[in-house]
């Protein structure tokens, strides 16, 4: 199945998630007008989310994103791990 969700992060930037999934995430793109430094960290976050069950809760997805971001020394401006998690679940629901 395919899903897409978009939201303006409170006090931040536009965040869009495009996702392909069955029981877990097969493919994901995190898109928008936000900033991530270094930019390549976002690809690591996308890669790290592949295989995550779609029944995973928002807190757990946010933790996975945060752990990858920390490992990459990434700084996010205009989005947060929690907002990414929330948008993923919105995309799955829709």
């Amino acid at each position: 199945m395919k899903g897409m969700a978009r939201q303006k992060v409170h006090g931040g930037k536009l965040l869009c998630v495009k996702i392909e999934y069955e029981k877990s995430i097969d493919k994901i793109q995190i898109l928008g007008d936000f900033f991530v430094y270094p930019e390549e960290s976002l690809w690591a976050i996308e890669d790290g989310l592949i295989g995550v069950s779609i029944n995973t809760g928002a807190d757990e997805i946010a933790r996975i994103v945060e752990d990858i971001a920390k490992a990459q020394n990434a700084e996010m401006i205009g989005i947060t791990p929690a907002a990414i998690a929330q948008t993923i679940l919105m995309a799955v629901t829709r």
Binding site: C16, Q29, L31, G32, F34, V36, E39, L42
Partner: peptide, 9 residues
């Protein structure tokens, strides 16, 4: 467009 945007979108 920004680095993380989709051109088509």
């Amino acid at each position: 467009i920004g680095r993380f945007q989709s051109l088509g979108d």
